Computed example of a mutant assay.
Amino acid sequence: MTEASSLTGRLLVATPALTDPNFDRAVVLLLDHDEDGTLGVVLNRPTQVEVSAVLEPWAELAGSPAVVFQGGPVSLDSALALAVLPGEPAGGAGPEGVLGWRRVHGAIGLVDLEAPPELLAAELGSLRVFAGYAGWTSGQLEDELVDGAWYVVDSEAGDVSSPDPERLWRAVLRRQRSELAMVATYPDDPSMN
């Protein structure tokens, strides 16, 4: 897969036709997409678990809501974190030298939860912690795209730290400059229409 065809940093937005309950109305940020497969996190599945209950040293940096998000159905016993570098240009041309943060796309990056939080506190915008992730084997996501399970759209830095994650699916669709904006009005239960 060429760099140009990689979907890393883009969003997968579940189509209304996607019936897998793990991904119903999901918005997935793709963290890695290459010939070996795809890895991402669901941005709009907050849990009831406070970050302070599981990663207390990081709780002060957690954005609102300060809860752990279910990043996907794979490895729910593992955690990863994302944060945006404030002031970082959207194209990501800024410095790479932030210890404990690795750029995914633009101003969005993975945070090393083994690093001391105080090392990153001055650099990071709000932190979002995810339990688990979404993963696809080589070619699996491409097959799902052909089947019409996902819309692929550009991400924005604010998607990672949306203060209203339950409305993220509609918000991402609504901002599209195409017929996708109309999908945002799709009812939760079409049979009630």
Results as ranks from 00 to 15, higher is better:
Pro165Thr: 09
Leu39Gly: 01
Gly40Tyr: 00
Ser5Tyr: 11
Leu141Val: 00
Asn44Trp: 09
Ala4Tyr: 05
Leu82Met: 09
Ser191His: 12
Arg102Val: 06
Thr137Asn: 08
Ala181Lys: 10
Ala62Trp: 06
Asp159Ala: 08
Ser52Ile: 10
Ala131Phe: 06
Glu123Phe: 13
Gln48Glu: 15
Arg175Met: 12
Arg102Lys: 05
Leu168Asn: 09
Arg175Thr: 09
Thr185Val: 06
Val54Ser: 11
Gly71Gln: 02
Leu55Thr: 03
Asn44Met: 09
Glu56Gln: 13
Met182Cys: 06
Thr19Met: 10
Gly158His: 13
Ala83Asn: 08
Ala134His: 02
Asp77Gly: 05
Ser126Phe: 07
Thr185Trp: 14
Val172Trp: 07
Gly9Tyr: 08
Arg45Asp: 07
Gly125Lys: 10
Asp112Gly: 08
Ser126Pro: 15
Leu76Ala: 07
Gln70Trp: 02
Ala93Lys: 03
Leu11Ile: 04
Ala90His: 11
Glu88Cys: 12
Val84Asn: 08
Gly94His: 08
Gly109Pro: 01
Leu39Phe: 10
Leu80Arg: 15
Ala62Lys: 06
Leu120Gln: 02
Trp150Pro: 04
Ala83Lys: 08
Glu166Arg: 12
Ala66Pro: 06
Pro187Ala: 14
Ala149Tyr: 02
Val28Met: 03
Leu30Trp: 05
Arg175Gln: 11
Arg177Pro: 02
Phe69Lys: 01
Val68Gly: 04
Ala59Ser: 14
Pro187Lys: 13
Arg177Ala: 13
Gly135Met: 06
Val84Lys: 07
Thr185Gln: 14
Ser191Ala: 15
Pro57Val: 11
Leu124Ala: 04
Leu12Gly: 00
Ser6Gly: 12
Gly125Met: 11
Asp189Phe: 12
Leu113Ile: 02
Arg45Ala: 13
Ala171Pro: 04
Pro46Met: 08
Pro165His: 13
